[in-house]
Design a protein around this nucleic acid. Sequence first.
DNA 1: CTTGATGGGTAGCCTACCTATCTATCTAGC
DNA 2: GCTAGATAGATAGGTAGGCTACCCATCAAG
Lengths: 149, 149
Amino acid sequence: MVATRTTDDLDDALALAEALRPVLHRLIRQLRRESGDFGVSPLQGQLLIAIIKHPGIGTAELARQERVRGPTISGHINALEAAGLVARTAPATGDRRRIGLLATDKGRTVIKTLKRRRTDWLARQLGGLSRDARRAIRDAIAPLSEIGL
Amino acid sequence: MVATRTTDDLDDALALAEALRPVLHRLIRQLRRESGDFGVSPLQGQLLIAIIKHPGIGTAELARQERVRGPTISGHINALEAAGLVARTAPATGDRRRIGLLATDKGRTVIKTLKRRRTDWLARQLGGLSRDARRAIRDAIAPLSEIGL
DNA sequence: CTTGATGGGTAGCCTACCTATCTATCTAGC
DNA sequence: GCTAGATAGATAGGTAGGCTACCCATCAAG
């Protein structure tokens, strides 16, 4: 029955949401508290990685990727620029509203050392789990990424 | 080989952490932004539920459960008390440092209507996924809960 | 009866978002 | 060619939700 199926799906999703939400919040709280200071915040790290991967990317595109508003990007780019990790460059394309973001050598170094030396809290915790547990988490990443388009 | 196994596990955990972290952050950002105002914050909801489940519970116990510092609990209990959802009562046990937290009728009502609410953003998103995707997420909840003791 | 641990609280700070608003530029329709 | 609306980016100001530092009262143990 289609009607029943839909109802079941709704109930299923609702129950799942109730179970998932507190877990997510607890995890994030610990992640924020426990993960030490690497000079750049998690979002800034992501932005830096995105800029390295797509040189000349603009702030609007970054905002869409990270599902964040424009001013949030603006602020973080300001911080990254002040730290000498990225540079705002003149519009490369014909569109003179756009700016092109580039990572500096220092920025690339920061990401490289970050990725190499980040045996952080989260990784340690995950390492303490069984392989099955890690696989279950890994399998959930793709579905979780789909949420929110 | 035990040595190899350990190394693999470390690499595995590290890679998983790198993949999981941005997904978690993105999800939480959207959760915060998109989920409307239900009168109580997610953490306050959890606290209220815990108080209903364990009447007379104290703030220290709540802090441990939600993996949060004492003052954080203090603040939220203040808010919940000001909203008339919980009450601080005299120490029930022999320990006169402790207080006993109780949910008011209003508090119980709030939780009941909260749980029945079907218009939740997260629930809608989860409902839009395939059943397989939801199962993958459900299977990851237990492992994720284990993180951080 | 001091010493240290624990339950609970206040004050003040900080991070990381948000909305509202502004300027400059691009694009479409008249 | 010129205005109307959309888009890129920035700034100002606000808020939520944690945290640390510090305080007091009480308990438990030497």
